[in-house]
């Protein structure tokens, strides 16, 4: 006997409507336009891909909307390049003099340089995530990110030092401190996401993976990351909604390995396929419990940032958000 899942349950899933052919076509046109424009089209192409992907994903019957503009990304990039030029100029003048003074010619500049670089990367990641959230809408309501990018980067750097000092053992504690900062500063309109997880809860499993790294050639980390994802979902809340993420380490390993294989044999042309597989994987395993009280999900009155992601572009990554794809 066949049973159908009740209506409400299928409604409370993330659904994916994207078509591989469409995405592939957009991707190819992007590549062609990037050629013609010596890659300047990059920012507009990226925007087009996002607009398409967002509009093909729905929750409770309504599709997401991406309202970012290529020009915003481009201006953000120009700003970041200008900032980097000023910074490297300052570094080339200051660092050698400090080094000469203390006669620690090599170690000090290198350490300072890595710390600043790391700080900037964290800053860039947080800012990019904020931009992405601010350009995402669902049922007219804008997502948003609060907190401060500098605060986040400081946290990432400070706890990053502890990771180094403890030979990596502090990693999972730090991860969940940063997750707390990120998720608790994520908003749908005036409704905030809440995260109450703590890395201590996962430390036992983390330690096992840590010790098994060499005998399993690192593969044990897929199982750890699956547990970690499940834990993060279970400790996240949005109003009345709770999340459940249920994939196994084996499934995650298979996804990553097959995606890697696809990318290699197609020289990266399989990018649309890989992207859709990642999204589908997440949506297939993500469950929602409880329902949003929509009357209480109200638009925020705060202004969204004007330009975006510049610094992240320099470091070669951009924000990812609720698994809507690392685009």
């Amino acid at each position: 006997m066949q049973t159908h899942p009740p209506e409400t349950q299928s409604a409370r899933r993330m659904n994916q409507h994207a078509n591989l052919g469409d995405l592939f076509l957009i991707h190819l046109v992007n590549i062609a336009l990037k050629w013609v424009t010596l890659n300047i089209y990059h920012f507009w192409g990226k925007t087009r891909i996002r607009e398409y992907l967002w509009s093909q994903q729905s929750y409770d019957g309504d599709r997401f909307e991406y309202s970012g503009r290529g020009m915003e990304l481009f201006m953000g990039f120009i700003k970041a390049v200008a900032a980097m030029i000023v910074l490297s100029l300052a570094a080339s003048i200051l660092l050698p003099q400090v080094g000469d003074m203390l006669d620690l010619a090599f170690i000090l500049p290198v350490a300072a340089f890595s710390a600043v670089g790391y700080f900037l990367m964290a800053l860039a990641g947080y800012t990019a995530r904020g931009y992405l959230l601010s350009r995402t809408r669902w049922r007219s309501i804008r997502f948003a990110q609060g907190g401060s990018a500098a605060g986040y980067a400081g946290l990432a750097l400070g706890h990053g030092l502890l990771v180094v000092l403890t030979l990596g053992l502090y990693w999972t504690i730090r991860r969940h401190i940063l997750l707390q900062y990120k998720i608790n500063n994520t908003w749908l309109g005036r409704t905030g996401f809440v995260y109450d997880g703590n890395g201590k809860d996962l430390f036992g499993k983390f330690l096992v993976s840590y010790l098994l790294t060499i005998p399993t050639l690192g593969l044990c980390w897929y199982w750890y990351m699956a547990r970690d994802a499940e834990y993060v979902a279970a400790h996240t809340r949005l109003q009345n909604v709770r999340f459940r993420l249920t994939y196994t380490g084996g499934q995650l390993l298979w996804l990553r390995a097959s995606n890697l294989f696809l990318s290699i044999v197609t020289f990266g042309l399989a990018y649309p396929w890989v992207t859709l597989r990642n999204i589908r994987f997440l949506f297939d395993h993500l469950h929602f419990e409880g329902r949003l009280d929509y009357e209480l999900v109200l638009q925020s009155i705060e202004e969204a940032p004007k330009t975006g992601e510049g610094l992240a572009e320099i470091f070669g990554f951009s924000g990812s958000f609720l698994g809507l794809g690392r685009i």
């Binding site: 890659n39 990059h42 990266g268 070669g316």
Partner: peptide
């Protein structure tokens, strides 16, 4: 290299070889 690296953001071979030639 920094500029091209940034702009060939996705790992597409076509984009990055264009950047190399330039």
């Amino acid at each position: 290299r920094m500029i091209f690296h940034v702009m060939a953001g996705d790992a597409s071979v076509l984009g990055s070889s264009a950047a190399k030639i330039t």
